Computed example of a mutant assay.
Amino acid sequence: MWLVAPIALLIVGALSLAVYHYAYELFAHAADRHEPPKPVNVSDVVKTTVTVLTLIGAVLAGIYAYRKQLLAEGDARRADASQLADRYTTAAEQLGHERAAVRLAGVYALARLADDWIDQRQVCIDVLCAYLRMPYEPHPAEATHKEGEREVRLTIIRTIRDHLRHPDTPTSWTENFLDFTGATFDGGDFTDSHFHGRADFRRAIFPSGIIDFRRAVFSGTVIFRTTKFSGSTVDFTHAEFSGGTVDFTGATFSGGTVSFRDVLLRSGEINFEGAEQTGGTVDFTHARSDGTQINWGPFPHPPEP
């Protein structure tokens, strides 16, 4: 303080003197051009000097206030980021809890965090998808079965579905990457979902239950490569495939039912190359194709519209 104050006063004094001399020169030049010549009005010089110094002070004060605001906003952003990171840590810990009720709380907490934390939304989604990719034993008689685990997994699927139904909302996940690689689905509701980004069901297993994709819209890249449909009912009734790529290359249909009834194949590309049907039912009744590039593989072509 004792060092900065004298330096500041010296700077202000030097600036004031410089402004005063400059203003005096201007007034003197104007007075010399006057006929007859007039003496310089020192009062006008002082007023001009004070006015200029006031304007300079106002500008410096504005710059200081703006800088202070930026620092405050930076502190606020860091505080928000710290709070969001704490929420993430808490939610992740809840997902790993032994009790199903706590894991359910973690699902909802992570979904709310994804809505609030746009910069790290994909990370939150990745954690939820990673949970579905973890080893899962649906049969209660098995030693590795977890009490309430199926309800937790179905809740994650419903949570993802809810964020895929309304593409125009700020909390939509329709453009985000959904990685279900190798996941086991023994149930799940994706009705009315919009897949505009990339959804990867590669090597996923559908052993039982009902997985509902009715009225879903696929306009991004959806991958079912080497997926195993071995006993579940997977329902794509009235789904729309438009503009994206849907890949069933190498998929195995060995049981259950996969229904493509009344689907609309509008544009884009659908590939069943290398797919194999050894059992179960694959139903293309009333499927309509309109400009879609389709490699049907082993399946019969649906009738043209």
Rank of each mutant, 00 (worst) to 15 (best):
Q69V: 04
Q120N: 15
G62M: 01
D290H: 11
N41A: 12
D115S: 13
A216H: 02
T89L: 06
L70N: 11
G220L: 03
A199K: 03
N41Q: 13
R225N: 07
D200G: 00
T181N: 08
H238E: 10
I205G: 05
D44G: 08
R150D: 09
R103K: 11
L104V: 06
E73R: 06
E240A: 13
P170G: 11
T159G: 02
D262R: 07
S82D: 13
A251T: 10
F213V: 07
K68L: 09
V127E: 07
T51G: 13
A30H: 15
L104C: 07
T233S: 04
L110R: 05
G220T: 04
S193K: 12
P39N: 11
Q293I: 09
I63C: 12
E240V: 15
V4H: 11
A101E: 12
A130G: 02
F299S: 03
R225A: 01
S43K: 15
T48G: 05
S82L: 15
F206T: 00
P167I: 05
S289C: 05
Y88T: 14
G57H: 02
A61P: 00
A5T: 09
K228H: 12
T144K: 13
E240T: 15
F177N: 05
A76M: 13
Q69S: 09
A58R: 03
G74M: 06
S193A: 15
E93K: 14
S289T: 07
F195M: 01
S232I: 02
I7V: 15
F190C: 03
R99V: 08
T171C: 07
Y136H: 03
G209F: 08
E273G: 12
F229R: 04
P300M: 06
T233W: 03
T227F: 01
D247F: 06
A199Y: 05
R202P: 03
V40Y: 01
I11W: 01
R165S: 13
T171L: 10
E304G: 10
K68T: 04
D235N: 13
I11N: 14
V40K: 11
T174N: 07
P300F: 02
W173C: 01
T90A: 14
L113K: 03
Y24M: 13
A8Y: 15
Q120C: 02
Q277V: 09
E25L: 12
I270N: 00
V222H: 04
I211Q: 00
H29E: 10
A18Y: 14
I56T: 07
F284A: 00
A143P: 10
L3M: 09
